[in-house]
Design a protein around this nucleic acid. Sequence first.
DNA 1: GCGACAG
DNA 2: ATCTTGTCGC
Length: 239
Amino acid sequence: MDPQREHDWPSTEQQAYLVQQELRPLVRAAPLTAPPRTLAGLDVAYGGSHGSADDRVAAAVVVLDADTLEVLDSATAVGTAGFPYIPGLFAFRELPVLIAALRGLRTTPDVLLCDGQGLAHPRRFGLACHLGVLAGLPTLGVAKTPLLGSWDEPGPARGDSSDVNDGGEVVARVLRTQHGVKPVTVSTGHLITLDDACALVLRASPHYRLPETTRLSDRLSRTALAAAASPADAGPAAT
DNA sequence: GCGACAG
DNA sequence: ATCTTGTCGC
C-alpha cells in the first residue's frame, strides 16, 4: 500500500492548463450588443497567514450605473483560497469565491471589469476570459501591472494609450487613466472589443488611476473579510 | 539553462 | 495580495 499511486495522474497544475485549453475556444471576440447601462467591478481580499494555499478570502462585486457611477447593487462572499498563486493560473485561485459573490447580486451587470488580465495571458485565457465564459457576460481585464508583452510608452495625458504586443499579436493596451500616472493594462475578456474595453475603463476612472469599479470592490472585499474574521462565516451576502 | 511572472 | 514609516504634494 504505497501512499502514492503507481500511475502518474496529471498534477493539479497540469489539469488547470487542460481546463484553460478546453475553455479558451468558448471566448467570443464579438463586440458589445448595446451600450452598457451598468458596470460591475470584482475584487478579492486576502487575510490570515500568507503564502498558504488555503487562507481566508473575501470577494466583492459592486454594480455601478455606467453613466453616473452611482452604486446600484453589491454582494460579497467569503471562502478559502484553495489554489496557490501561480502567474498564468491566477483564475483558479480567485474564481470560486468571485462566482459565489456574483450569485449574490440582485441584478445582472452588463459588463464585468475584472482585476487582472484577459487576453493578455500566456495561453490567451486570463481571469477576465475565464469569468466571461463562466458568467456568460461581457468582461474585460484591467491590471495594475502587465503580465507579458512589449509596448511603447504612451503619452502623458489622460486617455493616451499604446498597444501591447506579444507573439506578434495585440493582446492588450496600456492606458493612462489620469495625467502622469502609471498606465493600467486593459485587455478583452469576453464579448467586447479592446476599443470598447478601454473606453469603459476610462469612463469608470474619472478621478483616480484605478476605475471606481476596482476601488469600490477592493474596499468592500476588505471590509467583508474583516467582518467575517470573528464570526463563523456564512455564504454569499448581498448588500 | 536562466529569469520573469496578473493578485 | 499583504506586511508597514515616513515623506512628498495639493
